[in-house]
């Protein structure tokens, strides 16, 4: 179980997260929505420990990462897989080297044959079989997302984090990625947290939807209730009209 308790975070003396509370149980797919710059991606980075909260506690399966030693913290991070908004594939590595990276660069008992087998399995799962030796620059945006997804799941994480997984993709590719996210989260029985402002993605992959408004997560909605939500902020976001430049 993942818990965020009273999380606060400032950037340049501006309160981005004022008091975020969130509990996600194993097997749950939740989505965090909100306007651009509202702090959605910050929540994912906090969970993974890429940045530190100013106050509050994050607990994963009863473990507080702040109390871990450096080596224990690196172990803790292995429970997570993050799909970055920009895919963040390493340009200098091939597709298979990118996917195998979490295995090859960490101490484990796997030999090269076993690592290659896992890479092939991950490629098959994201429907990119045979792309092993390609460079990331040879792939389309959607294909890069798939490879990044394969890299995120190769260690069989217990919590998958998706940062804007379908932004910038055409509707067909978006649908493919959304299906893939649901399938993988179900097959691996992971906690899955998606940050997005794509309505189609929200509706296809979420069990619960949280709206991040002014640094606070509003009460969760389901895919059914969010479409008829009486909250004017959520209504405005879902049906259009929020000025994202504000």
């Amino acid at each position: 179980m993942l818990e965020l308790i009273n999380i606060k975070k400032q950037f340049n003396q501006v309160d981005i997260l004022k008091n975020v509370n969130l509990t996600v149980n194993p097997g749950e797919n939740i989505t965090i929505i909100g306007t651009s710059g509202s702090g959605k991606s910050t929540i994912l980075k906090l969970i993974l420990g890429l940045i530190e909260q100013d106050s509050g506690t994050i607990m994963f399966n009863g473990v507080n990462p702040e109390k871990l030693s450096t080596s224990q913290f690196y172990e803790y991070r292995k429970y997570f897989g993050l799909l970055f908004q920009s895919s963040a594939l390493f340009d200098s590595l091939t597709v298979e080297e990118n996917i195998a990276f979490p295995l090859t660069e960490q101490p484990n008992n796997l030999n090269n044959f076993e690592i290659n087998k896992k890479v092939d399995e991950a490629l098959e799962l994201v429907e990119m079989k045979g792309a092993n030796l390609k460079n990331p620059s040879e792939l389309s945006g959607g294909q890069q997302k798939r490879i990044a997804l394969a890299r995120a799941i190769i260690t069989k994480p217990k919590c998958l984090l998706f940062d804007e997984p379908t932004t910038g993709l055409d509707p067909v590719l978006s649908t493919n990625i959304e299906d893939l996210i649901v399938r993988i989260a179900t097959e691996l029985n992971t906690i899955s947290i998606t940050v997005t402002h794509q309505i189609s993605t929200i509706l296809r992959i979420s069990d619960l939807i949280y709206f991040l408004n002014d640094g606070i997560l509003l009460a969760p909605e389901t895919t059914q209730t969010i479409m008829v939500s009486k909250n004017p902020i959520i209504r405005s976001f879902i049906h259009g009209g929020i000025d994202e430049t504000k």
Binding site: K45, P102, E105
Partner: peptide
């Protein structure tokens, strides 16, 4: 800027 450094850290590097 393409988040590759964050990706490294996310993978415990």
């Amino acid at each position: 800027v393409t988040e590759q450094i964050d990706a490294l850290r996310a993978m415990s590097q």
